[in-house]
Design a protein around this nucleic acid. Structure first.
Lengths: 157, 157
DNA sequence: CGAGAATGACAACCAAGGTGTCATGATGGA
DNA sequence: TCCATCATGACACCTTGGTTGTCATTCTCG
């Protein structure tokens, strides 16, 4: 009767991948809520947190680079960076490669702020980890990265 | 110098879990964009798609149930359901368990619409699947579910 | 039966994030 | 070297996913 019959086994790989797909939404919302209720302690917003975290992990980079890295528009990242700069969390550094587009760098205050946030998140995740094995988490990372890169360049039909 | 030193190995489980955490944002955004550019063919919005998909997978349920299932507010789901109902994609069915809160059910049109969407998504995901093994995807599902349920009940601090 | 919980309806609101545009400055090719 | 072009920053506007708050109703259960 139905044209697509997932069946009780739900076996095919693409179907399981679809399950992953469906988990992303709820997960994102809850994660965001957690971050939202934690991050204000340092006076950050979710967007600013994302930017600082990126800088924390990848080192100084330009605004457009960050946009690409996080799948966000250049302009949005710019706003977050400006906001962070006003609060003294990041600063501009000369970019040898491009004169106009300066590198954004964490200030000591910025580093302290994002470190505090990340540290709390990790404490939380440690609890969540439970009996999950490294191998499982690695697989998860592989799957998600694959999905991420794939969604990046493919257009739907 | 830094209080949290991830180190080059990035080994500890909680750190890897943090990586998963960080992937969720970009993934969500790209996934959402894909869905956004696909879903209008059936005249759906992202929110309506989520509702229909839920009904498709879990069968008829009430609005509050759906909200809980997707980590969305009751009211938001209600809006989506009302919207879907206006378009004839879902219909109300008497709920034996609660007289006031009716079960929401897919109409044939609704089923056709969501099936079409899901089918296209699956075609896409099949491509994305590539050489990912079932086992990897399973691990991924386990990790994400764990994370999801954990974030659900725990409060920060 | 009465109190309190659950539901639907509706309004107000918030914030994430995108888009469009402009001016300016960088860059690379003829 | 100069010009066409691209990339960047700045700013305004908008969309919309999603929440919160409130009220009236209805259900449920002690």
């Amino acid at each position: 009767m139905r044209e697509t019959d997932p069946g009780p086994a739900a076996g095919a790989p693409a179907d399981r991948l679809a399950e992953v797909f469906d988990l992303v939404g709820p997960l994102y919302r809850r994660a965001q809520r957690k971050v939202e209720q934690d991050v204000p302690r340092e006076g950050l917003s979710v967007g600013v947190r994302a930017v600082l975290n990126l800088l924390r992990e990848q080192g100084p980079m330009t605004v457009p680079q960050m946009g690409r890295a996080q799948a966000l528009s250049r302009q949005f990242v710019q706003r977050m960076v400006n906001d962070a700069a006003e609060r003294g969390l990041v600063e501009l550094a000369a970019n040898p490669a491009h004169k106009r587009s300066s590198l954004i760098r964490l200030t000591p205050e910025g580093r302290a702020a994002i470190d505090a946030v990340v540290e709390r998140e990790r404490r939380l995740l440690r609890q969540a980890g439970g009996d999950l094995t490294e191998a499982e988490i690695d697989s998860c990372l592989r799957v998600l990265s694959r999905l991420l890169h794939f969604l990046d360049d493919v257009d739907m039909d």
